[in-house]
């Protein structure tokens, strides 16, 4: 479903990614590990077309994503849910409105929004915090809103870039459980993390990166650096 074909990304003479080639199949739960600066975020940014590769191509279901016309990029991005370490919620919108915004942007009807948003917030156990603004939520709660927003449009893939980086162990566990549940329902998950405990307990595919290169790719990997 996702295919990186010899992708390099050079920032001012420094290679953040160096000829990366990898496949991700539908329904996989892939973890990417590697030291800070290894190129994990860069890889995900290229998939989201937030940046262009210096060399090579990125395919999403046979489509070279960097050849998508900018007019159609919003449509493409709606097929990918994103969760980040810094939550990236709209600060002036409540939990409900943050999720409603994503649905409005994709042209969902008011009825769908009214019925789906409370449901998805219930799913991440925030049924009682619909009208809280991000600054009125804890880190774990914010991340659950972000996850709810990522899954609301039923994307094919969820990209989670260090989603637990700012969370305590209990919230970390919750977030990973939610991601697993989503994966069980058939959504592909790409997770980056520095948390050894998570990786070892997941027992899923692990891609290890160093200096912009993929150095290991294990079906049932462990956290080894």
């Amino acid at each position: 479903m996702i295919y990186f074909d010899g992708v390099s990304k050079i920032y001012e003479g420094h290679a953040a990614l160096d000829e990366v080639t990898l496949h991700i199949e539908p329904g996989e739960f892939v973890s990417i590990v590697g030291h800070s600066g290894a190129g994990k975020t860069t890889l995900l940014r290229l998939l989201l077309v937030e940046d262009r590769p210096t060399q090579g191509s990125v395919f999403f279901e046979k489509v070279n994503v960097h050849k998508i016309r900018s007019k159609h990029i919003p449509e493409y991005r709606r097929r990918i849910g994103t969760v980040f370490q810094d939550f990236r919620l709209l600060p002036n919108k409540t939990a409900y409105e943050n999720i409603a915004f994503a649905m409005e942007a994709s042209g969902k009807s008011d009825e769908e929004i009214r019925s789906d948003v409370p449901q998805v917030l219930e799913l991440v156990d925030l049924g009682d915090k619909l009208w809280h603004f991000p600054h009125e939520l804890s880190g774990g709660e914010k991340q659950r809103v972000a996850i709810a927003r990522a899954i609301i449009s039923q994307p094919d893939v969820i990209i989670a870039d260090e989603p637990t980086g700012n969370l305590d162990p209990v919230n970390t566990y919750d977030v990973i459980q939610i991601l697993k549940k989503i994966n069980d329902m058939g959504t592909t998950i790409i997770l980056t993390t520095h948390n050894k405990g998570i990786i070892d307990s997941l027992k899923k595919r692990v891609i290890t990166m160093a200096d912009g290169k993929v150095i290991r790719d294990d079906r049932h990997g462990k956290y080894v650096l």
Binding site: L48, E50, K71, P74, E75, R77, R78, T82, R88, L89, L90, P91, N92, F101, A102, E104, A105, S106, R149, S153
Partner: peptide, 15 residues
């Protein structure tokens, strides 16, 4: 930042 987030969740330019 908000503009970047809106784009990330798939809002088109006019929205």
């Amino acid at each position: 930042e908000e503009i970047a987030i809106m784009r990330l969740v798939g809002a088109n330019n006019s929205f």
